[in-house]
Amino acid sequence: MADQSTNSAQTAEADKGYWQANLRLIYISLAIWALVSFGFGILLRPLLSGISVGGTDLGFWFAQQGSILVFLVLIFNYAWRMNKLDAEYGVDEE
């Protein structure tokens, strides 16, 4: 009995650590998500106007293509990191 309760306490602890690690990854990813779209694409575009890209500036590129490419990287990075975290904390599906 005693063994079992330490076990479940350990599991609960591990689950908590897993969730914290997940949240950290989500915060970082969403910060980048907002930076490239709302930031570079819209609000910070004037700051990037000095960097020219094919007849216009970098902000235009981020608004029309760059942000989409970054979104892709974010999702695949998240999936890859989380699947690793699942295994690390022993919470993956058998």
Binding site: W33, Q64, S67, I68, F71, L74, I75, A79
Partner: peptide
């Protein structure tokens, strides 16, 4: 340029979906 909103809006939602809901 002003309608870049459609491009960012309709793709950026997938980041939210993947990180916050789908799994």
């Amino acid at each position: 340029y002003d309608n870049s909103t459609f491009l960012m809006g309709w793709t950026g939602g997938y980041v939210l979906l993947a990180l916050l809901l789908a799994p």
